[in-house]
Structures are given as structure tokens and as C-alpha cells.
């Protein structure tokens, strides 16, 4: 449970950075499709964010915390839905979590290194 609180607070921290770069850095006349979701034209478009080592690391932190929080949450909800714990549910959720972390890390690294 402590893990759930800590990952939740981690999401709060890293998620704030994520939301900030996407939703609070564009001029208000435009939508984010025309600005922060562009590939590479303005300071907080997608690639510049990933290129910045600190922001990329914070994205990885967000990825890790969210994976832990989401999988643990789903485990709880599933156990409480069917009425018992099942080790196969745990294993599948761990597998999904590992995949998401690896795949997400791959995306972050590629975008970070792309020139």
C-alpha cells in the first residue's frame, strides 16, 4: 500500500511536469495540435521535450510510477471484483507492466537520441 501512495505522489510530481510542458506552454490563441503536439518546431514541441535530458528522465519517472500505480490498482480492483486473489492475474499484470516500461523506455530513448 505504501508503494501505492508513493507511486501516486510520484505521478503527481512527474505528471505535473508532463502536463505543464504540453498544456501550459503554448500561446492561448492556438490549440495544442498546432503547437506542443507538433514534431519539432517550437521549444516545447515533442522532440525538444524528449531531447532535454531532465524532461526525458522525468517522463521515465512518470512512466515507472504510473505503471506501478496502474497495475497495483488494477490488481486491487480485479481481486475485489471476483472476490479472491489469483496469482495468474498478478503475473499477467506484472508482464503487462514490464512490457509497458520497456516499450515506453524505448520510445523515450529513441526520441531522446533522434537527430
Amino acid at each position: 500500500m505504501l508503494m501505492h501512495y508513493l507511486s501516486g505522489l510520484g505521478i503527481l510530481l512527474f505528471g505535473a511536469v508532463h502536463i505543464f510542458t504540453i498544456f501550459f506552454t503554448y500561446p492561448f490563441q492556438a490549440t495544442i495540435w498546432e503547437t506542443t503536439l507538433k514534431f519539432d518546431s517550437i521549444p516545447f514541441a515533442i522532440l525538444p521535450v524528449y531531447r532535454n535530458a531532465l524532461l526525458a528522465a522525468s517522463l521515465f519517472g512518470l512512466l515507472l510510477c504510473t505503471t506501478v500505480h496502474a497495475m497495483n490498482g488494477l490488481r486491487t480492483v480485479i481481486a475485489e471484483l471476483v472476490g479472491f486473489r489469483n496469482k495468474w492475474v498478478d503475473r499477467i499484470l506484472i508482464a503487462v507492466g514490464v512490457f509497458l516500461t520497456v516499450y515506453g523506455l524505448r520510445t523515450i530513448l529513441i526520441a531522446h537520441l533522434l537527430v
Binding site: T66, V77, L100, I110, A111
Partner: peptide
């Protein structure tokens, strides 16, 4: 919680597509 978890999974897959999808593992 459940909705956002599902969105999170979709989001990781979708942002993965931004650099070419699951088949791309090198820069």
C-alpha cells in the same frame, strides 16, 4: 482509476507510434 489505467496503456502504445511503432528498436 480503471479508465485512466486503460488510457495509460493506450497512451504508451500510441506515443510509441510517434517514432514508428513496435517494430522500431533502433534510432
Amino acid at each position: 482509476g480503471v479508465a485512466v489505467s486503460l488510457y495509460f496503456i493506450a497512451h504508451i502504445l500510441e506515443t510509441g507510434n510517434f517514432v514508428g511503432g513496435i517494430t522500431v528498436w533502433t534510432v
